[in-house]
Amino acid sequence: MSQSSPAATAAAAAAAAGLAGGALPMGHPEPPAHPGPEPQPQPAQGYGRVLGLLGLVVTAAGYEVVTRAFFSPRHVPPLGDIVPEAGGLLTDPEFWTATGRTLAVSAIGLVIAAVAGIAIGFGIGSVPWLLKVTSSTLDFLRPVPSIVLIPVLVLVLDVAEITVLLVAVSCFWIVLFQVLYGLRDVDPVAVETARSFRLGRAARTVHVVWPTVLPYLATAFRLMVSVALALALTGGLVMGAAGLGELIWASQEAGEVAAMYALVLLTGAIGIVLDTLARLAERRLLHWHVATRRELVR
């Protein structure tokens, strides 16, 4: 076993290094998503950017060749068909209306989730016995996929409301648990120090607790943006709630294959824009946080 021992030591060293970087806090049954800005997929520079562009061109060309050689355009249209269609969509008011609806539904759901999650999270998290009493119930409810609610809700609400609710429910769990993790992370020494300086409960919350929870909330926000978009689209696909999802499903049913692929392509683009905005917002909000500063130095 002369080999396994250095291997184990080295692996342990690697894990320790990872932890020191705050990459992945373990030791809770459910490790929280890392607080603060996540290690960014580093913006490629120079050489890397050229390679990235090359990779993109190769992927596109490969797709083009494969689709033209092996697939009928009725099943998998080549990019030559999809891209002009996408260009046409960009000037189509119907596309922008649908996009606006989808974004509005995501945003409303997200705001509801944020308000409810923060209120309930702080409510439960700052009362120890309440946390103990509720934790098993919360652990049970969280992994339940929110889409199981669709058949139930269809009976009482209209599809737009259900979609908002789906977004809100899924995002609510993210906020709630991030707030709870954040509260658990509050430094007791800092709290005691604040207390000995005679800071009241409100002042302690503002100056000690809130700055600790904020990075967790920023992480929650970044996660929520993509979850909200995905569920707003699901609402359109499954129930025909007005928006991009419904547009995609309608073009699939109408057999407008190139248009559908173009819509999916643009949906991905919207996802990229939202994700970039969320990261920017996070960086703005947490410019004082160690992780952000470290990243800027790098």
Binding site: L233, T267, G268
Partner: peptide
Amino acid sequence: FRVLPAPVIIPV
């Protein structure tokens, strides 16, 4: 693909 919402691949 990281940001493409997974459900949209169903119609595709």
